[in-house]
């Protein structure tokens, strides 16, 4: 696991919206098997970075390589092959509203893994159980789920194909503390067992302290620092100091050391 094989490489990335640049000459590498936490103030382009990596946004300049390949330059068939190795959890879940929760999760299993509908539904309920959703949720439509349930169902869909890289956009936001802690544990268990790589955008300091191997701080339009939590926390930067040594940061750290 420590072979340090890069899974995602972002080189010299610049993203502009009109005149306003969100990223300028941003570099970031995600290695196989690690959980990389991405933090940054609101509006520093964490979600934009995620969208650039998974190929939903064409960068204004620079290159993004996933599994050593440039997604946007690949022919559609190969791109789809590569995208099957991703799992993406969007901020608002992005469950398909015309399908039940079980169908949402079964969709990639039927389309890509070639399972029969029964097998896919069976496996979908397993994934649901994994993320802590009861079986009566399976038949419900996303519109009738609460925010936290939507998030968990979306995670189940992201996990459907047992992806090699998991992109999570604020997975614990809107979850109650107990569910959030269970989520952290689940993420660790699955990562240890399946050895996947996680790109985790989060504001949740507890998640950061419990799960992440490395933390990347987005600030001043680039990755200010990407290293282990201790080293990042020790970095001399006003924002980082406020973030990790503010009242919430201290609380999260002390709860970990207990």
């Amino acid at each position: 696991m420590n072979a340090r094989e890069p899974i995602v490489e972002v080189r010299d990335l610049t993203n502009r919206f009109g005149e306003q640049a969100v990223h300028e000459h941003l570099d970031l590498t995600v290695y196989r098997g690690e959980i990389l936490g991405v933090v940054g103030g609101s509006g520093t382009g964490k979600s934009v970075l995620l969208r650039s990596i998974v190929g939903l946004r064409r960068p204004s300049e620079g290159a993004v390589r996933v599994f050593g390949q440039d997604l946007l330059a690949l022919p559609p068939e190969q791109r789809s092959q590569l995208e099957r190795r991703f799992g993406v959890l969007f901020q608002d879940g992005a469950l398909f509203s015309s399908m039940t929760v079980a169908e949402n999760i079964a969709l990639p299993l039927i389309e890509h893994a070639g399972l029969t509908r029964e097998d896919a539904t069976r496996l979908a309920t397993v994934k649901l159980a994994l993320v802590g959703l009861s079986m009566d949720t399976a038949g419900k439509y996303p519109a009738s789920l609460s925010g936290g349930m939507t998030k968990r169902a979306a995670l189940a869909r992201a996990l459907a194909l047992d992806p090699e890289v998991l992109f999570l956009d604020e997975p614990t936001a809107g979850l109650d503390p107990i569910s959030a802690a269970a989520f952290d544990q689940l993420l660790l268990t699955l990562r240890n067992a399946l050895g996947f790589t996680v790109f985790l955008v989060t504001h949740d300091l507890d998640t950061l302290y419990t799960t992440c191997d490395r933390v990347a701080v987005l600030s001043q339009k680039r990755v200010l620092v990407a290293d282990t939590l201790e080293k990042v926390a020790a970095t001399d930067d006003p924002w980082i100091r406020d973030y990790f040594h503010g009242p919430r940061g201290r609380a999260a750290r002390s709860s970990l050391s207990i």
């Binding site: 802590g132 038949g139 699955l190 067992a193």
Partner: peptide, 17 residues
């Protein structure tokens, strides 16, 4: 750990109606 996680998740499993 993975087996246990899946197993305990499935222990609560019952067929949907």
């Amino acid at each position: 750990a993975l087996l246990q996680t899946v197993g305990s998740a499935l222990a609560a499993y019952c067929k949907p109606a």
